[in-house]
Design a protein around this nucleic acid. Structure first.
Lengths: 204, 204
DNA sequence: TCGCATTTTAACCAAAAGGTTAAACTTTTC
DNA sequence: GAAAAGTTTAACCTTTTGGTTAAAATGCGA
């Protein structure tokens, strides 16, 4: 792997900022630390992104797009319901395992600036209606139990996101702080969460 | 409700600190703001709690005890399994609705200082083994499906905690930012979460 | 009334942090 | 080869913030 050094300083900054912001949050992050992490100096950091605010906004939007990816293609695909749901959970848990700091970062900033959050969501093109529609069609077809689609979606998110967001706590409380054991547990959940949900909603 | 004003300054400080810390986190909280909230001045604040660190630790322990209350009495009671589980979820969701800032506060600080977190847990007397035992007995008795008790407990926590922790986000995304609608939804979940779990695990 | 803890006022300090600036050096581009 | 853009260095500024201090008030029990 030869030096790819694309001279792309902006990218270096964004990566460094993502790392520092997602670990420490807006309040805890330090511009100096981001500069260090990017291997540049503070002056250059401000040369690219004038203020901490602007840099943070860029990162937050980036992370948000990643955590709430465009799943419309999946939802609107021809796959049968069970596979859609299974794929959704697989992809989601995989994403979260690879980026364990994203959930708590989002949760952290959710409360800090709800106005900003609303603006990010509006410009992100998420379409929960399509997911609700999917559930409603299955309910009408008598394939799954009657339930509020909002409950179902939030349950899916909760079961996928919470164990990653609360990892440090769960790891200590239930896994004697054994990191590998907890990671294995999270991987296993790709299967168990799917079963847990389908067992609950499918009509046999 | 007449003024109970017990002149108890320490209590006033703790309440104010809890409010500010749970809203803003350790990094975002300001000693001046806590003093204002308590209706006293900064000098007096430091007179009672020498440093921000010490004050924060006191609050964190307090909040932690509240969020992970001693549920052993419930688990070890004579109630049948379904009622234990139902009561647990009822109490938990009620607690969280009344204290909506606790989950995200805990999640926020989880990552900041895992060492400290571990020490708080060790001195808190939580006994997950007893909950696991409850599930295992039901599995052996053939009343509920075979499953990892850790999965079951974490699922219960996820379904209860996540919707409150992520409230600002969920409210905007799925409820057009209608606060009352979301609160009603949370209340309703006391029932739906119970059903969702029992449908999934009970063997009929 | 004396003594003691509590509380206020207000000024102050030092460190941290975001941000600026100017000068100089390097690399890219045309 | 010159202009432009990128980058470094280092000093500097301002504001915020946690924390201190000293003096004076307040309240209170012995």
């Amino acid at each position: 792997m030869t030096e790819i050094k694309k001279d792309n300083t902006e990218e270096k900054i964004l990566n460094a900022a993502k790392k520092v912001f997602t670990h420490k949050g807006m309040d805890g992050a330090r511009m100096q630390e981001i500069a260090n992490e990017a291997g540049i100096n503070k002056a250059l950091l401000h040369y690219y992104f004038r203020t901490k605010e602007k840099l943070f906004e860029a990162i937050f939007r980036k992370v948000f797009r990643q955590v709430f990816p465009n799943i419309n293609t999946l939802i609107n695909s021809d796959l049968p319901f069970e596979e859609k749901l299974g794929t959704f959970i697989d992809k989601y848990i995989e994403l979260l395992i690879k980026n364990p700091f994203l959930p708590s970062f989002i949760l952290k900033e959710i409360h800090r600036d709800p106005e900003f959050l609303a603006s990010v969501i509006k410009s992100s093109g998420v379409k929960p209606q399509e997911i609700f529609g999917m559930f409603e069609r299955e309910i009408e077809a008598g394939k799954i139990r009657k339930a509020n689609p909002k409950d179902l979606l939030i349950n899916m998110l909760a079961l996928s996101i919470f164990p990653v967001a609360a990892k440090p706590l769960m790891k200590i409380m239930f896994f004697e702080n054994d990191n590998k054991a907890y990671n294995d547990f999270l991987l296993e959940r790709k299967k168990t969460v799917k079963e847990f949900i389908l067992n609950s909603i499918l009509i046999k």
